[in-house]
């Protein structure tokens, strides 16, 4: 068992989201759901983060930003797409400015459905992401014990 999934740090970015999923992500970090007691921090710096939490669909202006943040993160990294919009475009997939979900730009590891996704589902998704993170670390041939 490695130390990597013990205290994952998140970087959160709102692509064209309506904010519903974003305030639920923030609600996970505040009292009642409070994942900070497990060591999960919402850090603003992509170079310090393990998990990239994205909400919202992708439009023309967002593509460069999402790619930029993803490229700056260190391996191993996990991408969690939260909400129906991040998965496939949601209600807005037929809009002229929406090219689809986040997986049109970067590879996604975990999809959390919902509109807006509930905090319980988000925490579940992040925990699944931790398993993926550990698997990726193991693939590199290093398993810290």
């Amino acid at each position: 068992m490695s130390f990597l999934p013990k205290s994952p740090w998140l970087v959160h970015y709102d692509a064209s989201s309506c904010n519903g999923c974003d305030i639920e992500v923030l609600a996970c970090l505040t009292p009642v759901y409070d994942v900070e007691r497990f060591g999960v921090l919402n850090i603003g710096n992509p170079k310090h983060a393990d998990i990239f939490v994205v909400t919202g669909s992708v439009n023309e202006q967002n593509k460069a930003v999402i790619k930029n943040i993803y490229d700056q993160m260190a391996e191993p990294k996990v991408v969690v797409a939260i909400g129906a919009c991040a998965a496939s475009g949601g209600v807005f997939r037929e809009c002229y400015n929406v090219s689809g979900g986040v997986d049109t730009v970067i590879p996604v590891d975990v999809y959390v459905p919902g509109c807006a996704a509930r905090p319980e589902a988000i925490i579940d998704g992040v925990v699944l992401g931790l398993g993926v993170l550990e698997a990726k670390y193991g693939e590199k041939g290093k398993v810290a014990s």
């Binding site: 202006q61 002229y96 400015n97």
Partner: peptide
Amino acid sequence: LYETAKPRA
């Protein structure tokens, strides 16, 4: 202002 994918949508 918006730089949409489709101009003059």
